[in-house]
Write a protein that binds this DNA or RNA. Structure first.
Lengths: 96, 96
DNA sequence: GTCGAAATTACCGTTAAAGATAAATTTCCT
DNA sequence: AGGAAATTTATCTTTAACGGTAATTTCGAC
């Protein structure tokens, strides 16, 4: 965690988590209980100050009921163009 | 890293990394040089024995020239098939 | 069967993630 | 403004990621 692009990635991912949490009106405390991750740790992740492990991201994605990949998707490329909106899916949030 | 689903995630992601590396005919040593991550560490990640950090995944994805999200892409389901998500939510039940 | 490249495993040391707790700060509501 | 809730920040401890190195192991070619 030193690189500049890496900081941006962490900030972006954190921002997406925060937005998703906001759309569900969850507090950090509530998300902490859902994920088993402490509220201070979640705060650090959402503000891009911590480099979370893969399983940590997954626990957050699961609690927010979004595919982990959507939290990571970098602006240059979203998930497969061949796969339109997951029909079964996560309606959650009108993310452009 | 204890949960069973988490182990599967790590194994899946590792497998995708290995596959991608194989299609490019790269050795662990070569990928290690490209990423700055040691070959033993890469081996552990590819075999699902290590829980990599987000920036570690990104360095691997960058070196392999694939979007990070493709390495994570779950088989579009992390949610339990038997229990359809209650429309309003995974409510915090007693917690809220 | 031997040789050598590639990969796995096993140490060790450093660094950072994560939980817990408390304190400080910000935000929101009346 | 005042107060409560939410968030951030600070410490401290435990655990694990990561690099380095070396020792195995695996596997294909000869």
């Amino acid at each position: 965690m030193v690189d500049d692009a890496e900081k941006k990635l962490l900030a972006d991912v954190g921002y997406r988590i925060r937005e998703t949490r906001a759309t569900q009106s969850l507090s950090l405390e509530q998300l902490a209980r859902l994920t088993g991750i402490s509220a201070p740790a979640l705060s650090l992740i959402e503000t891009g100050k911590r480099d979370p492990r893969l399983t940590t991201l997954k626990r957050i994605a699961d609690a927010l009921r979004v595919p982990p990949a959507t939290l990571i998707a970098d602006d240059s490329d979203t998930v497969e163009p061949s796969a339109p909106a997951p029909s079964g899916g996560y309606d959650l949030g009108e993310y452009q």
